[in-house]
Design a protein around this nucleic acid. Sequence first.
RNA 1: GUGGGUGUAGCUCAGUUGGUUAGAGCGAAAGAUUGUGGCUCUUUAGGUCGCGGGUUCGAUCCCCGUCACUCACCCCA
Length: 425
Amino acid sequence: MASDEFLPIKGMSDIISPEVSLWQLVESRAREVFHAYGLTEIRTPILEREELFIHSLGNTTDVVQKEMFTLDYQGKMRLTLRPEGTAGVIRSLAGAGPDGRQARVYYLGPMFRAERPQAGRRRQFHQIGAELTGEANPLADAECLAMQAHLLKAWGLSQCRIKINTRGLPEDRAVVADGLRTVLKPHLDGLCEDCRRRYEQNVLRVLDCKNPACGKIVEGLPSMTSFMSEASRSYFEEVQYALRLLNLEGEVTPRLVRGLDYYAHTVWEISHPGLGAQDALSGGGRYQIMMNGKPVDGVGFALGMERVLAALNAEGVHAEDLVLRPKAWLVSLGEAALKENLLLAMTLRRLGVACGMDLTARSMKAQMRAAGKSGAAYVLIRGDAEMEKGVFQVKDMVASKQEEQALPEIMSLLLPDITPPPAGG
RNA sequence: GUGGGUGUAGCUCAGUUGGUUAGAGCGAAAGAUUGUGGCUCUUUAGGUCGCGGGUUCGAUCCCCGUCACUCACCCCA
């Protein structure tokens, strides 16, 4: 058992092979899909001023109240490890002037929240997200959700469930909260302890309480949308129309609530049955964030990388199958062959042929075992006899066949994809 | 932050109703096969039984504390 000093900090993990292969695959497919939609990557700092998150996420949210890693920098400022990606991206885009208000960007990277770790929840976790800024437009919301569905499909996830809802116009948020409190007030005694606290602090959360008693009370209440303005309701109708146009199934879920204050209008959540208690793969929606007194509008989503990977595992995609194997393995018998093989390995690598070898001339059996374990397709064996003739014993590890070959033949075996330079070039 | 579960070899786990040298499988290293991986057989290496204290003639086992991991609540992706 590893001693504590070799372990990373609680809730943080080293990402190593073979798992890292899956990360790379997921990230590269994501880049391809984002490119197809005209998004460019944005990389913002991991450390931001604390106020940025307090103002954009809302100072009554749990994320801000008890989950942020904040440090005091020489008594001059309070710096926070970003707990989510949107706030930093919008800060950056707002600073870019008018261009930033019509931007299409994606990001990926680590986020930090000081929660107790559990399945699907780490203190350092990773998100892939997208932000499309621009004034509220139902078509933009639908496009964003469609892009996300496309992404999940590109990863090979087929069992996702999309739930959508609306929070209405930004100015409706207070009206809805007041309305809900009014109709909930007579039932206060029947609510669970948590919900009596939520009633004060974050009344929308009462709607998705898991407690059956609370659920019963909520069922009898008028829906959230009934407190909203006509404009909010018709906006949501148009979003749903656009989703049908794009052939997307979104389950309208009136009790779906997003936790952060900046959400307005369309919100959604995508869950996966293979995940356990934290079954949300992703959340997203339209938002309006005040930056320097001016509103920035946009629509976006964030996917939890670790949860995507867990979902892929649940659907039978395993990192072990994706690990890159060397094309060749060099086996050296004797010191002279060892040195010549090192030189050959460097040459092959410059030509783009991944190859490995043992740097000691230990027993052939041991070297063959290492070759087999590496998964190399071919093994090139060279000893004194081969050195003298200028040849190699070339073993095809899959077919388990071996023949003597000279270097030119070996090159065409290892470099079959090399195309001759264009004529006249 | 609250509650439950688990800490024994690199990994997965047995085990001892408290008693002498703590076991297995997998993995690793070497050999059987004097220059050939996977299958088989043999051998070897590898352990402060998470850490600290208590009870006891004696604790890996019982008790207390602590730390770590893990699951769930809360919340979120």
